[in-house]
Amino acid sequence: MFSFLRSYFSNDLAIDLGTANTLIYVRSKGIVLDEPSVVAIRLEGGPNAKKTIQAVGKEAKEMLGKAPGAITVIRPMKDGVIADFTVTEQMLKQFIKKVHDSKLLSPSPRIIICVPSGSTQVERRAIRESAIGAGASQVFLIEEPMAAAIGAGLPVADATGSMVVDIGGGTTEVGVISLGGMVYAGSVRVGGDKLDEAIINYISRNYGMLIGENTAENIKKMIGSAFPGAEVREMEVSGINKAEGIPRKFTISSNEILEALTEPLNQIVSAVKSALEKTPPELGADIADKGMVLTGGGALLRDLDRLLMEETGLPVIVADDPLTCVARGCGLALEKMDKLGSIFASE
């Protein structure tokens, strides 16, 4: 009954609860928070032993791999879904607290939150529950490809096929959208994390060096590429030499990283291809004309669009500001939440 009052006091939120980053969009304010989905939990000893949250977001990410035994740094999201329910809930609560300046009232906003299209009912329920646990009064779910397409500015409501490939931290979502709904949605659990993992494994195998997740991510961002280019770049990396057990520096080239990334990238390519196979011909014609749009952090991998272009023979474009596409799409859906029915996902 008083929901309109409550929503007057606390702004509605759209949350891109990603494996790598969590973005929060506040109605009529835009994206106000963009933090890594990382939580550092400190285990306090002594008579009043308890677990407290040491840090969330950027601070916590800096602790990743560097924390002492008393601090556990957790990435509560894995493969696009919740791996640790309570920690996710706490992280969301902390983030929502950050974006709400009102101190008097505990925030209880309506929340739009996106879920991977391939997530199971249990996983969706978990995401919904964690948002409610974090203080949401109502939770609406939207599938990631839909949010990404809206954020990229595709004509989702038109009777024309639009294909979007959202390469996130944990999953790659492929969606074909027409008339405000998903005609095809595919999801493979390959994303930025898998690329990092592939780099770690490659270096461990070929160089006998151990590197951390953050280092692998840096390598990927600096010299990672998906398609052999004319230019070969190199980077100096530090790691632990497995044989000697001593930290060493070594230099790695972009061609090696390309080789390391081949296997996960092929999974992405095959996901795109199978999406194209299963697209109805009329929509396929639209896609052949317009091409597909890459969003998500993975789209920033150098020449990934060229790889897909060469593999599919279709035009591939990278959306503007691909990292925030999903959050912006969620936000646009939030702005028009009361008028839109078809774009939201059921549980």
Partner: peptide, 13 residues
């Protein structure tokens, strides 16, 4: 061309 998003994308490519 199919729309602003695609124009920008094509242009970038």
């Amino acid at each position: 061309l199919p729309g602003p998003t695609f124009v920008r994308g094509f242009l970038r490519n």
